[in-house]
């Protein structure tokens, strides 16, 4: 069992600036910073293999290499730009259950995340529910 996680580092200045400059999004109350560690803490003991990708191109590149099946994909999405990039490469996720953790608050952008057919849209502040959904998905 393995999970693949797209999670940009909240400290990365570029991503912060990009989101601020876009003027459409703002970070949620709990920024992506530190989320990676929380994800590892929440899932690490139960999941054998956790892989992280920082960017959508990295994630896409990862799909060009074989990966252990079955896999669950967790997408930490920081805003419209990342979401649009993911939508453009969604064919790679065919047949892979997707969980989304948005770190933005725009309802319009949230509505667009359904394009990725997520099994669950979770909350970065409280990963208990995400872990429960993940447990059900990996038990199949």
């Amino acid at each position: 069992m393995s999970i693949l996680i797209l999670c940009a580092d909240g400290d990365t200045p570029d991503s912060s600036v990009a989101n601020t400059c876009a003027g459409q999004e703002k970070w949620g109350e709990q920024p992506a910073k530190g989320l990676r560690e929380k994800l590892v803490k929440a899932f690490g003991p139960k999941i054998g293999n956790i892989e992280f990708c920082d960017t959508v191109p990295q994630l896409t590149a990862r799909f060009h290499r074989p990966m252990a099946a079955p896999t669950v994909l967790i997408l930490v999405i920081d805003g419209q730009d990342t979401l649009e990039s993911l939508i453009s490469v969604r064919d790679f996720f065919d047949g892979i259950p997707v969980i989304i953790i948005p770190t933005f608050e725009s309802p319009q952008t949230l509505r667009q995340t359904y394009t990725l057919c997520p099994r669950y849209i979770g909350n970065g502040d409280n990963l208990i529910h995400v872990a429960a959904v993940l447990a059900n998905l990996t038990a199949r």
Partner: peptide, 15 residues
């Protein structure tokens, strides 16, 4: 319009 998936087997009953 949107196509929204609800995976009843993936969601814990409490959710």
């Amino acid at each position: 319009g949107p196509f929204v998936v609800v995976d009843c087997a993936a969601l814990p009953e409490s959710l």
